[in-house]
Amino acid sequence: MSLEGESAPDFTLQSTAGGETTLSDTLESGPTVVVVNRGYWCSFCAEQLQTFSEVSYDLWFHDDVDIVPVVTSELERVTEMRDRYDLDVQLLADPDGEVAEQYSGTEQTSHGLTGIAGVYVVDEEGTIQYEQVADHPADRTQGNWVRYFIRNDYEDPFGE
């Protein structure tokens, strides 16, 4: 079931910055990109998060866009992931997979419960303008593409 065109499910999760982050609060200042990741151990997730980390300041400064990565792991492990990969974005811990389940879904793997990787661009009104759910762990939308998508008024920047 696709969420594109639907209202984004609201959530509140613990952040690696300390405290909590609520989706509806981030939308008060502009669009938000929700990036659901499988877990702290996922190298494909880390690689994708690095692409969002590279564009996060530019998107925030010029377009009031927040990046909120949701990682299906405990806060301690998520903090280790942020530090290990020197990410400039704060990660949100979703240890029970409740938020992942509302977006791209969850699955049982050899690592336990994991989120299914997905990217959601949520506009200022709370409507999901873009959704990509991974068919394979390496199937990922990258940060730079999302930047162009937002700056192209939520249209594919390459006309596809």
Rank of each mutant, 00 (worst) to 15 (best):
S2R: 01
L3G: 10
E4Q: 11
G5A: 02
G5N: 03
G5D: 05
G5K: 01
E6K: 13
E6T: 13
A8G: 07
D10N: 12
F11K: 01
Q14R: 11
G19P: 13
G19I: 11
E20H: 09
T21S: 08
T22I: 10
T22V: 05
L23D: 09
L23M: 07
S24P: 10
T26Y: 08
L27W: 03
G30D: 03
G30T: 07
P31T: 13
T32K: 00
V35F: 02
V35D: 01
V36W: 01
G39V: 12
G39S: 10
Y40Q: 15
W41E: 06
W41C: 12
F44D: 12
A46W: 05
A46S: 12
E47G: 12
Q48N: 06
F52I: 10
E54Y: 11
L59I: 13
L59W: 04
L59M: 15
L59C: 11
L59K: 03
W60D: 14
F61I: 12
F61S: 14
H62P: 00
D64C: 03
D66L: 00
D66Q: 05
D66N: 14
V68A: 08
V71A: 02
V71T: 05
V71I: 14
T72H: 01
T72V: 15
S73L: 06
E74F: 07
E74N: 09
V78K: 00
T79A: 12
E80M: 11
R82Y: 02
Y85H: 13
L87R: 02
D88H: 09
L92E: 01
A93T: 07
D94W: 06
D96E: 14
E98T: 15
V99C: 09
V99P: 10
E101Q: 11
Y103M: 03
G105M: 09
Q108C: 09
Q108G: 08
S110M: 13
S110I: 13
S110T: 15
G112A: 07
T114I: 15
G115Q: 04
G115F: 02
G115S: 02
I116Y: 00
I116N: 05
I116H: 03
A117I: 11
G118P: 10
V119E: 00
Y120C: 07
Y120P: 12
V122N: 06
E124R: 12
E124D: 14
G126Y: 08
T127L: 10
Y130S: 04
E131M: 05
Q132H: 15
Q132F: 15
Q132W: 15
V133M: 03
A134W: 05
D135E: 15
D135S: 15
D139G: 08
R140Y: 03
T141K: 02
T141N: 00
T141V: 15
Q142N: 11
Q142I: 12
N144V: 15
W145R: 00
V146C: 05
V146P: 09
V146M: 02
R147N: 11
R151S: 09
N152E: 08
Y154L: 07
Y154R: 00
G159Y: 03
E160I: 15
E160R: 13
